[in-house]
Amino acid sequence: MNTFVNLTVYGLSDGAILALAALGFVLIYKATGVINFAQGEFLMIGAYVVYSSFVVFGLPLTVAVVVGVLFAIVLGVLIERLVLRPLVGENAISVIMVTIGLAALLRAVVQMIFGTKAVSQPPLLPRNAIQLLPGTSVPISRLLVIVIAAVVLTAFTVFFRRSRHGIAMRAVADDQQAALTMGISVRRIFAMSWALAAVSALVGGLLLGDVSEVSQRLATFGLYVFPVVILGGLDSVPGTIVGGLVIGLLTQYVSGYYDAGLATIVPYLLLIAILMVRPYGLFGETRIERV
């Protein structure tokens, strides 16, 4: 029983972090049609930026997080402006490769500054165990991760539904030309979606760095956004939450009950199966081009 509860909580918290990373991925894909292979690196950069302002520069945690968010916004906008915008309209291979190159570059910069070893960061969330059901104990930090991710995801959803900018983003995702005729600046929306993607990845990376470790492995974890978004649907925001939770739980159960090594590729097996059966995912629009 204890194992099951533990695995479920761990799976849900992993899934919540994946959902945050995947949300950024989907935002970029919906608005700009770009597959961002550097999403995992965004997670990593987020964790490292908060680490350096919190631990290295000794700022209070809230200030450190604000600094991180600002950094993420600037980084997202800069990347969109300098790297992606010149490639608007190029073929898929070029766009994919440029994000791969970006991923290599970002990882190298982190490696250059912080080295390859994990950096030590004092726990941000309390780590002591709590009894969820009689006879079980799970760390509070994992539960808090779920709560924080849920709050951030809700905030994003409200932003898309209610705010002017959010509605403009949805308009651009829906039909770029129609949005242009309505006076929406598509350029600004492109920049904004990269900035928001970086911010949501920052929150994910911050949480993941706290419950695991702040190291370059965060970027590898980011590769799991692909199974998540394929499962949920490449262009679906609710899909990222469902997909994230399913993948998080699945990997934790497989690694807990069966084989930790197998757990690393179970998401990919699921991905292939979904691509074969239902390539647009659970909630995606059935617009995929078939051949």
């Binding site: 994919i96 097996l269 991905l271 691509l275 390539p279």
Partner: peptide, 21 residues
Amino acid sequence: LPALRLKGLYLAIATLASQEI
């Protein structure tokens, strides 16, 4: 074989998965 059904971005992700497997 996935290439018969998938294009561009989806194919990239499918081949990424087969690489990992």
